[in-house]
């Protein structure tokens, strides 16, 4: 036990700063990916053929290729991008594409009568979306969106292939050095768990708040 504690104390500072990197990657790409996904989902369902094609192309591309490929692509093809930025761009675009599909499904699951009622009152498409349709999607969005964000949080480990020493890589390095597998990975697992559980708890609170509004 004391050996475990001693090892834990040794690795903790580096592990925590790596955790910070992971958090930065996850939070920033989530925050940027959600509005991007919203725009793409609206583009997908819009009447404009051009918008629809661009949005579809984007979503197909980023859901249809491996995330690691996307990360390596940005880092490898654009020489000016440093690892963290390249990873961030890839994560944001990837998360946006998955979010777009989640939102599109949520929007299309709203009864068509809602849009008809809004338009029949003289509301524009945009007004109807903003005031009637989208607010009704929030509750439907939460479970799949939480899933996507949880997956994203764990996928941030891919940033290691472009030189970012995030939680997973830092743990691996300690294990490589010390061969103390359990005593190191248990902390990595704990940190990932805390992040995902916190996210889920936040979503639950949001869901309850939305429920109260009927």
């Amino acid at each position: 036990m004391s050996e475990f504690l001693a090892h834990s104390i040794t690795i903790m500072p580096a592990l925590l700063s790596a955790l910070l990197k992971t958090l930065q990657l996850a939070v920033i790409s989530a925050v940027l990916g959600i509005p991007l996904g919203l725009m793409a989902s609206l583009g997908r369902i819009s009447k404009s053929r051009i918008l629809g094609l661009i949005a579809s192309g984007y979503v197909t591309l980023f859901r249809g290729t491996p995330l690691m490929l996307q990360v390596l692509f940005f880092w490898g093809v654009f020489s000016q991008l440093e690892g963290f930025t390249a990873a961030l761009i890839a994560f944001t675009l990837n998360s946006g594409a998955y979010t777009a599909e989640i939102m599109r499904a949520a929007i299309q699951s709203i009864d068509k009568g809602q849009m008809e009622a809004a338009r029949s009152l003289g509301m524009s498409y945009g007004q109807a979306m903003r005031r009637v349709i989208l607010p009704q999607t929030y509750r439907r969005l939460l479970p799949p969106l939480v899933n996507e964000l949880a997956a994203l949080t764990k996928d941030t480990s891919l940033a290691m292939v472009v030189g970012v020493v995030e939680l997973m890589k830092q743990s691996q390095q300690f294990v490589a050095r010390t061969a103390n597998v359990a005593g190191t990975y248990v902390w990595a697992a704990l940190f990932y768990l805390v992040m995902v559980v916190a996210l889920t708890a936040l979503a639950n609170r949001l869901e309850k708040k939305l429920e109260a509004r009927g």
């Binding site: 990360v71 880092w75 490898g76 093809v77 020489s79 690892g83 290691m160 292939v161 472009v162 030189g163």
Partner: peptide
């Protein structure tokens, strides 16, 4: 030094990192 996981290390060299 830059610490890059093996999967990406050659890519980084080719792209001038």
């Amino acid at each position: 030094f830059q610490n890059v996981a093996w999967d990406g290390i050659l890519t980084g060299l080719k792209s001038g990192k």
